[in-house]
Design a protein around this nucleic acid. Structure first.
Lengths: 337, 337
DNA sequence: CAGCATTTTGATACCGGTAACTTTAGGCTC
DNA sequence: GAGCCTAAAGTTACCGGTATCAAAATGCTG
């Protein structure tokens, strides 16, 4: 039991009711559904609220009404600005309707995600948006049992928990690989993020493309690197040593491609002449470095917006026609390829 | 009243109690303070919890116990990875103690912050960490009245709401400006973020330094730019047109310095020979570009960690000896100056 | 083994709201 | 103005837990 803090005697609805000389119920109505209270009383109530500095107790409200206006968003990390757009998409939908968004970060481990989900379910949030698509059995069961509406939006999972609004990491990786092939690159290397479920899907997409092209899967071309700028440098080092004949590098993690580009600059490798570089995520940075880096523009904002909309639809009791939404992606061709 | 979703008949403590043939109270104790229940009963309870898939209702718990294990963190934006370290610092302290962190973004407008704070207070969170230091009167009053422990950690405010764990934006900006002067730069330009309260403090710090150096404040050297990479480019353009004699540029916003560096590259300006560049925040990027950018290393992680610790101290009822903590900063000298 | 302190469990009231229902107050028709 | 209908306000019970105090079980001492 962690908390031992007690809320210091805060103002209760009863206090407001007494002050306005009405019943608690009238106060409740004046706050939640003002139209249903006659103007005179309503003003008296609102005045009392103002005078006493009353702040509605959502705890009690949610408990009693068995509904909540809080939506939880579970992200693997906040280190990355790639999620900012998604957060904005969600907020833009929720805010005008009076819902509140609470974000929590959970890493890539299903066990950690489980703890976060458990906390949200314990708080009886109105709905949950999960970026991850790999969940522990306990988490899945808990979500199902609690009946919490859920949207997954980091990938398109084979077996959705509930609703989905995302792009397909596998399709996107495949498309970019094919794009590089179409541009004439023969030896396309792939830098993969270790221990990242979305990284794994991307890796499969790369394989798909090679298979479709009828090219053999050269294990030297598939490079496992660490995250961040460092990963890009590692990939270049690997190519220099082990597959100098590679003519393109597709980086499957956000800033990784920039790290690779910087490393090429350090080594005096011309991009794209010596080596073409493509990135998975179209961060703002990609168009500011030179050469600009070809990348996949993902529907980050849309993912947020549609996730929130789907959630609200479900919360309001309407069933959804298509609970799995593939939002696609686009390839942005720049000077690096 | 937004939500109309009803929690579908979830398992209650009463159900667990019946199944384990004990009183609700025993279940409550077995979950919150296992030591206080004898092993036999405790196991029976835990087995029942497991079998029924019971998830504790924090709503009810918080309402009844008038305490919460949720801590709210209010950030101006999630677009920026600079807050990731702070989030991590907070989590690292809270997680092992069973507290949960919920993050919300609020922009730079006190009115928006007020809405977020109000939501957190309505949820009766155990404590609040605010990055902003400019609050609406309503928000301040609400926090005071509710008795919620609060830590501000984005700057050292003149009049703290409660506790503070931060560095001083003003001091940091002053120190960097003095550093540039010490390196011999004579015409130090300053690129400021418009409409950002922390930006304003930094601007004052720059002024302080000039005053201390006995240099006149040349208005052409103080440049207001937009945020992001673009802002840096704008600053360079301004210098080229209006103050070509400037020999150093101090950028007061995160990626701005990188944008400035890129723009210098485009124009063929040598850094630092033609123009030295310094950045406020020591993002990872700063050491990966070339030349590496001189910047201020801020105690982002510490700010999170100490904020959380202060909050817990207060929550546990102990008073703090020093409720305002200045965590300082360091200058990282790199090739750009 | 009685007598008392301590630990473990249970009964009851209440946390601060809202749902559902009842009562009262108005408004209209004839 | 009686009769009926609707709107507005109030009453009561309960949401799902925990605090608090009382009761029962256990242990210890002499």
């Amino acid at each position: 039991m962690p908390a031992s803090n007690k809320f210091t005697g805060s103002v209760r609805m009863r206090d407001v009711a007494e002050r306005a000389r009405v019943s608690r119920m009238t106060v409740s109505r004046a706050l939640n559904d003002p139209e249903s209270v006659k103007e005179g009383l309503r003003n008296r109530v609102l005045a009392a609220v103002e005078e006493l500095g009353y702040v509605h107790n959502h705890l009690a409200r949610s408990l009693s009404s068995r509904s909540s206006n809080v939506i939880g968003l579970v992200l693997p990390s906040l280190e990355n600005s790639i999620f900012a757009q998604t957060v904005k998409g969600v907020s833009d939908v929720l805010r005008p309707l009076g819902y509140h968004l609470m974000v929590t970060e959970c890493g890539n481990e299903p066990k950690d995600e489980e703890r976060v989900i458990s906390a949200f379910v314990a708080q009886r949030v109105g709905g949950l948006i999960l970026h991850g698509t790999h969940h522990s059995a306990v988490a899945a069961r808990m979500l199902k049992a609690s009946g919490t509406p859920v949207v997954e939006n980091g990938d398109i999972p084979a077996e959705p928990l509930d609703m989905v609004a995302s792009y397909s990491n596998r399709d996107a990786a495949k498309a970019m690989t094919l794009h590089l092939a179409r541009l004439g690159y023969k030896q396309i290397a792939f830098a993969a993020l270790a221990a990242n479920p979305r990284g794994a899907s991307r890796s499969l997409g790369y394989d798909d493309a090679l298979a479709e092209l009828g090219r053999p899967a050269d294990p030297r071309l598939k490079i496992e690197v660490s995250r961040g700028f460092t990963g890009g440098a590692e990939a270049i080092a690997h190519i220099a040593t082990n597959v100098p004949e590679a003519d393109a590098l597709f980086c499957a993690g956000d800033v990784m491609a920039v790290g690779a580009l910087f490393e090429c600059n350090r080594r005096g490798w011309k991009v794209p002449d010596r080596l073409a570089i493509a990135s998975f995520d179209d961060l703002e940075l990609m168009r500011h470095v030179s050469p600009g880096i070809t990348s996949l523009q993902l529907p980050r904002y849309e993912m947020g917006r549609r996730s929130a909309e789907m959630l609200l639809t479900r919360i309001e009791g309407r069933e959804l026609p298509v609970p799995v939404l593939d939002l696609g992606f686009e390839i942005v061709q720049r000077a690096s390829t």
